[in-house]
Write a protein that binds this DNA or RNA. Structure first.
Lengths: 354, 354
DNA sequence: GAAACTTTTGCACGCGCTTGCAAAAAAGCG
DNA sequence: CGCTTTTTTGCAAGCGCGTGCAAAAGTTTC
């Protein structure tokens, strides 16, 4: 129906003599006709590595230019079984870290000649599995998951459809997808030793209760590292990894009998909440009374009001290695996960010496 | 080549008897064969409003279920000239306000049965025009521009291709696109009267020097509203609409002979920078020494360290009206722009009385 | 200049789907 | 039950493109 309507418009327009300029879409056929060659010729002109003589190539390009032709990626995708589409499935994408990742990913994908489709898994219903199935509808070449963890069945379905999957910070022992993780254990160790050097003795860990693998890895790592020095860790888990949760955790921690003098927050947002809670609800000074370290190094961490010492997500590396893997030859089956290092960015929330 | 390889795999698999489960993609043909009907029947089953008897419909659905079939949107898009794709073209999408908008838009589009393609215009080269042309490659049904302003020629090209365009906060007199704007003038007037009620007499306006239409509208509105009360406005423009620029502007403003006691910041990020500058570089107290109002009401504005009084972007309304218009009947030609109201959210950066 | 190459070109088929059209089946009616 | 009207169905064409194949054109070689 729509197509019919469009067709009609086009014809009318043509009758009025405005020709190609106003035609809905110019096809390879049109270009071929104008250039006086076969349609294959124009198709080959736009296919890197195909056999076309320089002369016809010129002719085709000229005609294409004049008509404003560009290949229809939908049709090309249909033939090639390679749509050039990469799906980014992500929830709560306005979270600073996620937003930065999405920005960097889309950019990198574009420079690699791919295009990003954004799938929002905010609504609770179908969540990730539905989203992943959706990626199949559009024959996406690959999916990159920033949040959620897919069911094994659906993962296999995607892989069998020739799709590649990248999991960022979602470690799990699913095989097939490329997994990118941070060395959370190492970061935790660095945090502990930084706290100790600052003279802290009462360590706490502020986590969310969603229990994402990488968050749990940080928690375990921190507890283990502290144990090596004979220290116990007060762990508080609450809500999501957002400001409010940090605030809430401050309420819990600073109304207890023995209060921490150092807190590792599982991400920066929670650290900000915790800092504001400590400062404004309990009058604590940071870093004199309380040392804090966060994770992600989002932009706000460098704002003077917070000046948060935090671990930096190597966004560039994450993005580069993801896209590189997408373009590499499919070594189907088990894929070696990437393990990236998150360096500590020193600012002002851990004191230098006691 | 890829297609050929896939075909080969499929055949092998079939020979081994694993059948459909492992086949790359199951097509409508497969379903038809299994259900014992024609391919048109299955196509009609998945086309709302098409004529199929309840019985065959059931049979088809069953077969589809068993085989894991879902229509290929690429192929459907090819036929229907309606891909279901909506392009979001945006730069610096990790900016809190933009990120929120992108999140809300993708969500709303999905519930409307569309899917979002994200086009990043960060890199300076082609910018918006290239991006918009890219949307044509994928035969997007529509494009929503959150940043940048397209050339008229390319706009017309998109419109002629049957694409619809939405401009958010990018007012300009381009005709054809649906434009959504805020009532910046009204907001500016509200800001002035709030400052006056607080006893402020030295107004300043902190703007970026990129000169986006909506930002300039706020500036003009503020100056005009102040003039009605016989007050002059010290305008400072610097850099981008980011934290650092606000910081820089603080340096400028508070080293001058006559210092402002009220600043309207063109967005929240700049307001934060200005606040931090005022507080930490100049020891000013907010709101006692200095009143501040921002724009956007991003999440950070409610954080205790800032507690910024600011104008709220009606994100929900923006998103809803955008998507609604996309689905409405094309009233081609001049489209009446939407003019939305941005209410002031009172927090703690404007004092109540003198 | 003819034979043996190599490169370029056009044809025709197919990717997976929608849809107008006419035939077939079902339903309504006196 | 026969006839008309409505609904359902299959056929076939076509959306815009890529690509194997064989014919055509161009190059080299002796």
């Amino acid at each position: 129906m729509v197509a019919a309507a469009r067709k009609r418009v086009q014809d009318t327009v043509n009758n009025y003599g405005f020709m190609q300029l106003n035609k809905s879409f110019v096809s390879a056929d049109d270009v071929a006709k104008r250039a006086g060659v076969s349609r294959s010729a124009v198709s080959r002109t736009f296919t890197p590595g195909a056999s076309v003589s320089e002369e016809t190539r010129q002719r085709v390009m000229e005609a294409a230019q004049a008509l404003g032709y560009h290949v229809n990626q939908l049709a090309r995708g249909l033939m090639r079984s390679e749509s050039g589409i990469v799906c980014l499935v992500v929830s709560e994408m306005d979270t600073p870290y996620r937003a930065r990742l999405v920005r960097a990913l889309t950019h990198e994908l574009q420079t690699a000649g791919k295009i990003a489709m954004l799938i929002n898994t905010d609504r609770s219903d179908g969540s990730v599995d539905t989203a992943l199935r959706q990626t199949l509808h559009y024959r996406a070449d690959a999916s990159i998951l920033l949040s959620g963890l897919p069911d094994k069945a659906i993962t296999r379905l995607c892989l069998n459809s020739g799709q590649r999957i990248v999991l960022i910070n979602r470690d799990d022992d699913i095989e097939g997808p490329f997994r990118i993780n941070l060395d959370d254990g190492q970061a935790a160790r660095v945090a502990v030793s930084a706290f100790l050097r600052a003279g802290c003795r009462h360590l706490a860990f502020a986590n969310s209760d969603v229990g994402t693998p990488s968050l749990m890895a940080r928690e375990r790592g921190f507890i283990a590292a502290a144990a090596e020095f004979g220290l116990e860790v007060r762990v508080v888990r609450h809500g999501n990894t957002v400001y409010e949760s940090g605030r809430k955790i401050a309420q819990t921690l600073f109304t207890e009998a023995v209060q921490p003098d150092a807190v590792f927050c599982v991400n920066d947002l929670m650290a900000f909440g915790l800092m504001d809670g400590a400062r404004y609800d309990f009058g604590l000074n940071i870093p004199e009374d309380l040392c804090i370290v966060g994770f992600d190094d989002i932009e706000q961490s460098s704002w003077t009001s917070y000046n948060l010492t935090t671990f930096s997500q190597p966004v560039d590396e994450i993005v580069k290695s993801s896209v590189a893997w997408l373009q590499s030859d499919a070594t189907a089956g088990r894929v070696r996960p990437a393990n990236l290092h998150a360096p500590l960015i020193w600012r002002k929330t851990i004191r230098n010496k006691l």
